[in-house]
């Protein structure tokens, strides 16, 4: 880990929907500029954890803290959802892509920079009279949008409607749009879902680039093991809302509990699987 304290700490997170305990006493850390993967079988509660972190759900119990470099801390479980990207600098994407499909690629990226532009336009009053300060801020915003279009290979499609893009490009645009908010932590909900092998390789490159260049950590939910094992620094495995493993890709790969969870083995058979693995590796 690059800094002593982790960027995000999740402590004793519980999320209850009526009688269902979707997340059960979950604690984990997300390091600064780390790529942390949250994996687990379907229905393990991964997206619920995401929704708690990004404020779309209020957790039943627990604490989620974001620690910024300047020493300020934010308690995410107490913040409104729109304030989390705005002040705590945690941005997210969605499992089912949520683009502004009737707006162009460039417009999507401009909406991502709404808050700084709003201040630059003096909350519309300066902008409507065409003050010079706003014009400058707008040009800077276009430059940032251009930068992200270059990184995601969307420059050619800048003036096309987002809904017209092929699926893989829509995924990339959603990431670019989230990056335009200037996040310190980017939460990606299944970014590789529906991508072909070449596209998921591109995605790996993009995520590594973001970590290297943008001083941002990444937390991702993913089923594509090519992505998870290829780029993650740290993996957290969930099953039935509980954390069953936490470690480096190498540790997770050999963890009998994880293998059991993925293969759907009963609890009492975990020991057998453990033996089997040991047999293979020796």
């Amino acid at each position: 880990m690059s800094a002593p304290s982790p960027f995000l700490t999740v402590e004793h997170l519980n999320m209850r929907f009526g009688g269902l305990l979707a997340v059960d006493d979950l604690s984990f850390d997300v390091g600064r500029q780390d790529i942390t993967a949250l994996i687990g079988p379907n229905g393990a509660g991964k997206t619920t954890v995401f929704n708690c972190i990004t404020g779309f759900y209020k957790p039943t119990e627990g604490r989620i803290t974001a620690n910024h470099d300047d020493g300020s801390t934010f308690l995410l479980e107490r913040m409104d959802d729109f304030k989390i990207p705005k002040t705590a600098k945690v941005a997210r994407t969605f499992q089912n892509i949520r683009l502004f499909s009737g707006m162009t690629v460039l417009e999507n990226l401009m909406v991502g920079q709404h808050n700084p532009l709003m201040v630059a336009s003096n909350f519309t009053f300066g902008g409507i009279f065409g003050l010079a300060g706003y014009k400058q801020a707008e040009n800077a915003a276009i430059e940032l949008a251009k930068y992200w279009m270059e990184q995601t290979g969307l420059t050619e499609r800048a003036d096309d409607a987002a809904g017209d893009l092929p699926y893989g490009d829509q995924r990339k645009l959603e990431i670019a749009r989230a990056m335009c908010t200037g996040p310190k932590l980017l939460c990606l909900d299944e970014p590789a879902a529906g991508l072909n092998p070449r596209e998921s390789d591109d995605l790996n490159k993009l995520l590594l680039f973001i970590r290297a260049e943008c001083d941002a950590g990444i937390l991702l939910i993913e089923h594509d093991m090519n992505v998870v094992m290829g780029i993650s620094d740290h993996i957290v495995v969930l099953d039935y809302g509980k954390k069953i493993a936490d470690g480096t890709p190498e540790e997770i790969r050999n963890d009998p509990k994880v293998i059991a969870a993925y293969l759907g083995v009963d609890d009492d058979e975990v020991a057998d699987v453990e033996q089997e693995i040991e047999g293979v590796s020796t």
Partner: peptide, 8 residues
């Protein structure tokens, strides 16, 4: 929902 996720 996308608006809220972008801090609007």
């Amino acid at each position: 929902i996308a608006c809220r996720s972008l801090g609007l």
